[in-house]
């Protein structure tokens, strides 16, 4: 074949701005649809598993709780303590000016329970557990392991998603409680050792400032955040196409999407709870 006989490659038309916006909107819509489908399937199979517990893979939920939850405890405790300490030091500076040091308990308690505890735990788990879920499932997709599960009449949702769904649904609220306690204890330490507050005074003030309603709200928030992390990370993992580079891209996209969704959901919760 001579060179002149090679047909010219048709020039690829660049999509217009409106087309790009449309494509992005469509892809976001499809992703939301995939997450919603996964949520409905998980709830369906969870209900089924409650009725027939033997259908759950033995030990896998506990393994996931250890992998995704327990191992995150030290970092959650450390960061929450440091943030509680920082918040307490900064707040105390201002409160001292007005002689209102006792309100340190109110400030630390409310900010840790209403906002920092749930959000900080969710962000840590999104970066740690969300990325791990995406990387693991994406690698399984690339290595045809997910297809192998289907070929053995094993529903990948049942096998891969349910243990992670249950594990994070239990572990994340517990980690949130631990985070709130660590932050409050750090505030207490600052109040007692640096500003001569009494332990009893701090705890009495905390109890008055923090009705149980706030604790339930924090737990509800953390449960919602855990579902967002599981479903976004699983969707990103299952939808991966290509090789090792695609696994890396999916993992990064998972962390970004999880954190964005968590902050968005937090804003929605603030609107619902405090408007």
């Amino acid at each position: 074949m001579t060179e002149s006989a090679i047909p010219p490659t048709p020039e690829k038309r660049q999509p217009s701005v409106s087309e790009q916006v449309g494509e992005s909107a469509l892809s976001i819509f499809q992703e939301i649809k995939a997450v919603a489908l996964l949520l409905s399937e998980s709830i369906y199979y969870s209900t089924l598993a409650v009725r027939r517990p033997k259908t759950l893979t033995r030990g896998s939920t506990a393994t996931q709780m250890i992998q995704l939850g327990s191992t995150a405890l030290p970092i959650v405790l450390l960061l929450s303590t440091l943030i509680g300490f920082t918040l307490a030091m900064q707040s105390a500076q201002q409160l001292q000016k007005y002689g209102a040091m006792i309100f340190l308990a109110d400030g630390i308690g409310m900010s840790m329970v209403m906002e920092i505890g749930p959000i900080l735990t969710a962000v840590i788990l999104a970066g740690r557990s969300g990325s791990a879920i995406t990387a693991e499932i994406a690698t399984m997709v690339v290595q045809e392991e997910v297809m192998a599960l289907r070929s053995m009449a094993i529903n990948p949702i049942h096998y891969l998603v349910l243990p992670r769904f249950w594990a994070l649904s239990i572990a994340q609220p517990l980690l949130t409680v631990a985070s709130c306690l660590a932050g409050i204890v750090a505030g207490l330490v600052v109040g007692v050792f640096f500003y001569q507050l009494s332990v009893t005074g701090f705890l009495t003030e905390l109890q008055q400032a923090l009705p149980m309603r706030y604790v339930w709200q924090a737990l509800l928030k953390s449960l919602t955040f855990s579902w967002l992390i599981v479903f976004i990370s699983v969707t990103k993992g299952l939808n991966v196409r290509g090789g090792a580079d695609a696994v890396g891209r999916a993992t990064t996209a998972c962390v970004v999407s999880c954190i964005f969704s968590i902050i968005l959901a937090d804003a929605v919760f603030s609107f619902i709870f405090y408007w």
Partner: peptide
Amino acid sequence: FENMGILFQGAALIS
């Protein structure tokens, strides 16, 4: 699927 088996290219064992 209970009556068929598949051997995948990379074996696809769950790692």
